[in-house]
Every structure is written in C-alpha cells, then in structure tokens.
Amino acid sequence: MKKTKFLIATAILGIATFVAIAADHIDAPAVQGGTSDITDFYAFQGENTSNIAFVANIQGLLGSGSDTQNAAFDENVMIEFNIDNTGDNVEDLVIQAIARDGKMYVFGPTAPVQTGLNSTIVSNTANQVVVDITPYGQSAIVASSGGMMAFAGPRDDPFFMDFAQYGQIIGGNAASFNNPGTDTFAGSNVLSIVVEVPKSMIGGSGTINTWVESKRRQ
C-alpha cells in the first residue's frame, strides 16, 4: 500500500496500566453520525497474559437489522492506536488500521513517521496483519501474523447506560440510578477493530498511556 497522509478527525483519551476504558456515543458535533465517530476505546491484558489487546468501536447505535448489514468501514478513515511508553504523552508507537476491499490492514506497533495531528501509513513495518472483515451475523474471522492477532467487523455494543434514568437525575427528578437499570444500548451494534499484540512489542516499564484517533484522508 502506498504511503498516504491522514488528518485527525476525533480522539478519545485513555491512560492504562494495561487496562483502559473510554466511551463517547455520537455527541461530538464534527463527527456525529459519521463514519469516523469513535464510540468506545478499550485496552486490556489478553487471555494470554503476555499480550495486550486494543479495541476501537466506531459508528455507534447501529440497528440490529439493515443498519448493521449495510454499515461498512470507511476506506478514507484510518483508526490509529497511539502508545506512549515513556510518560511524556507523545506517541512512541502506533498501530494503524485501514480498510481496503473487504479487508482490514493493520500496521504496527511501530514508531510513527510523525507525531501529532497528521499521520502517514507505516506500511513498510515488519509488524503487520491483514484480516477479512467479518460480515454481520457470521462467526468472527481472526487473522494472526508474527504474534499479532486482528479482527474487524460488527459487534454488539458493549457499553451499558440508562439514559432515561440519567435524564431524570439531571432533571432533578431522581437521586440515583436504578439497580438493575435499563440498557439504552441493548440491541444496538458498532463496528469493531480488535488488535492483540505481545507486550514485548510495546516496551516500557509496564505502564503506558494509550489513546485512539480516527483520521480522515487529506
């Protein structure tokens, strides 16, 4: 793949000691309802405790029918996982994911060509894996290469929030959430990108800062 420059569209921040969760469901005006909108970001230790998994969910609140069946990764949008392993809040490593012709191409973790708002695809890195995008309703397709594993496709939205009760609390009509509450996101889907890599590829002391960005082709 040729090198292509991308410009940041939106970002969600998280700080992790191999556990991070951040969430935001289509309330950023610049990307609301768009193909670059990030809903959730997770980073956590894998089932294999020598690995760390990074998960980015985009295009939230997809319905369980045709909305999800027709949803697709935007080939003009790159998802970039940023990893700071020196504590200066500047990315030392990136993992980049971009869709092409029904496949998700994942590059990294590797040093970025440049830091900050602009990015160039690091397609010349030795760390890369290509996975077929899993169609809606089918079993997960997972690809692996060089110790890395990757998945891309629609999944049930894991985020739980009782927005109706939240509205009551904000409006002064309730003091707390119900137990159990009502999951506003039940039955809705997202498009997920999951990348699992050996911790040895990340380096550092074991505590990292990590965040994810969606970047649109210039």
Rank of each mutant, 00 (worst) to 15 (best):
Asp156Pro: 11
Thr125Asn: 11
Tyr105Glu: 06
Ile169Arg: 04
Asp92Thr: 08
Tyr166Thr: 02
Ser123Pro: 02
Asp157Thr: 05
Phe163Glu: 13
Asp67Pro: 13
Phe151Ile: 03
Gly172Cys: 03
Phe159Lys: 04
Ser119Thr: 14
Asp88Cys: 05
Met149Trp: 12
Ala143Tyr: 01
Asp101Ser: 10
Asp101Lys: 01
Gly87Lys: 05
Asn118Ala: 15
Gly167Asp: 10
Pro112Asp: 05
Gln114Ser: 13
Gly153Ile: 00
Gly167Lys: 02
Phe151Arg: 09
Gly146Lys: 03
Gly171Cys: 03
Ser144Ala: 08
Phe151Asp: 02
Val129Tyr: 04
Val129Asn: 00
Asn82Gly: 05
Ala99Tyr: 08
Ala126Thr: 04
Ile141Leu: 06
Ala97Met: 10
Asn173Cys: 11
Phe107Cys: 10
Gln114Phe: 14
Asn70Lys: 15
Ile95Thr: 00
Asp92His: 02
Gln165Gly: 02
Val122Ala: 11
Phe73Gly: 01
Gln69Thr: 07
Arg100Val: 10
Gln114Leu: 15
Ala140Tyr: 14
Phe107Ser: 02
Glu75Tyr: 01
Asn70Ser: 10
Ala97Val: 00
Ala164Leu: 15
Leu93Trp: 08
Gly87His: 06
Asp157Arg: 09
Val94Gly: 00
Asp84Lys: 03
Gly172Asn: 00
Met161Gln: 15
Thr110Asp: 12
Val94Trp: 07
Asn89Met: 12
Ala143Leu: 00
Gly137Pro: 08
Gly147Cys: 09
Ile98Cys: 00
Arg100Trp: 14
Ile133His: 01
Pro154Leu: 10
Val142Lys: 01
Met148Ser: 06
Gln96Leu: 09
Val106Gly: 02
Ala175Arg: 02
Ala175Ile: 10
Glu80Arg: 12
Ala97Gly: 03
Ile141Ser: 00
Thr110Cys: 13
Gly167Asn: 05
Asp162Glu: 06
Ile133Ala: 04
Ile83Trp: 11
Gln165His: 04
Pro158Lys: 05
Met161Arg: 12
Asn173Ile: 13
Phe81Leu: 07
Ala175Lys: 02
Pro109Glu: 07
Gln168Leu: 15
Asn82Trp: 06
Met78Pro: 03
Pro112Lys: 02
Val131Thr: 06
Gly153Val: 02
Asn89Asp: 15
Ile95Gln: 01
Gly171Asn: 02
Ser119Val: 09
Asn76Asp: 14
Gly108Arg: 04
Gln168Asn: 11
Ser66Ala: 11
Pro112Val: 01
Ala175Gly: 10
Asn85Tyr: 08
Gly146Tyr: 09
Val77Trp: 04
Val142Pro: 06
Ala140Val: 13
Gly171Met: 10
Gly102Val: 07
Asn85Val: 11
Ala126Glu: 04
Ser64Lys: 05
Thr110Val: 12
Asp92Gly: 06
Phe81Gln: 01
Met104Glu: 03
Gln96Ala: 07
Ser123Lys: 06
Ile121Cys: 06
Asp92Ile: 12
Gln69Cys: 12
Phe159Gln: 03
Pro109Leu: 15
Asp156Leu: 07
Asp101Glu: 12
Arg155Gln: 10
Arg100Tyr: 14
Gln138Met: 13
Asp84Gln: 04
Asn89Gly: 03
Thr110Leu: 13
Gly102Ile: 04
Gln96Lys: 08
